[in-house]
Amino acid sequence: MPTPIVSLADVRLTLASRAGPVEILRGMDLSVAPGEALGIVGPSGSGKTTLLMVIAGLERVSSGTITVNGTALVGKNEDALARFRRDTIGIVFQSFHLIPTMTALENVAVPLEFKGVADALALARTHLERVGLSHRLTHYPSQLSGGEQQRVAIARALASGAKIILADEPTGNLDLDTGQAIMDLLFTVKREDGTTLILITHDPALAQRCDRVASVRDGRIVSGAQP
C-alpha cells in the first residue's frame, strides 16, 4: 500500500463545558490513500465534521497524531497551518461560504491572490469554465442558483491545486437533480486530477460511489478506517 496521504492515530478532542469535559473525538484512527475517494457516514453529532476540521488543521486536537500530505499538524502554529491549507486542502461546504460582495470570478481568484499567483484572474476563469460557469463570471452569489454557487465553491477549492478535497454534505442545500450534477462534477474532477476526496454524506447511495466508506459513531471510526 502507498504511504497514506492522510493518517490519524489515536486522535482525541475534549472540550470544556459548564457541565464538565465533553469528548468530541475519542481515539480516531484513519488512513487514506492518495487519490482515494472516502465516504464518511454516521449520525448527526458523531464527530464527522470535526474529523474534517482536524484534517484541515482548523481544529486543534487534545492528543494523538495527524499527518496530511507528509505534514505533521499537531504543534504547528496558525501561520504554518494556514500555509498548509493554502497549498494542500480544498474545502467544499454545504452552505457554499462565498463572499457575497465579490463576483464568481473574484471569489475563485481570492485564494490564488493570497498564494501570490500572478495570473490569478486568468486561472480562476479557467476553473470556472471547467465547472460550466463561463457565462456567470461577473455574477454575484445572490444572482446564482444554489447549484451554481456550489460550482463556484468547487472551482475555488480546485483552483489552487489542492491535493485533498474535503466535502461536508456538499449537496445538502440542493435539490435532488442539482445535487446529482454536483456530485458527478466532483467525482469527475477527482478522477481527472487524481485528487483525494473525503466526503461526508447522509446519503448511502452517494457514499457507495466512493472507493471506501468509513462509519463514525460517538467520536470513533467503527468501520472502514483502513484502505
Rank of each mutant, 00 (worst) to 15 (best):
L166T: 14
D184P: 15
S63R: 15
A155D: 02
Q149D: 04
I164W: 08
R125G: 03
I99Q: 15
L25Y: 07
T201Q: 05
S62Q: 01
G27R: 09
P141V: 00
H97Y: 07
L199H: 15
V54R: 09
L98R: 07
H135R: 15
I24V: 06
R209L: 08
E169W: 11
A157C: 10
V32Q: 00
A162S: 11
T126P: 06
N69V: 04
D119P: 11
L206F: 03
H127L: 13
H127C: 02
L30K: 00
V22I: 14
E106V: 02
R220M: 15
I221Y: 07
A109F: 07
F187C: 12
D184S: 13
L197T: 08
V92P: 00
R86N: 12
L8A: 01
L38F: 00
E23M: 03
A56W: 04
A153V: 08
S134F: 00
G194S: 14
H139V: 03
L51G: 03
H135Y: 02
L25G: 02
F114W: 14
T3W: 00
L197N: 04
I89R: 07
P141L: 00
G172R: 13
I24M: 02
D175A: 09
D177M: 11
T178Y: 05
T14D: 13
I5K: 12
I99G: 14
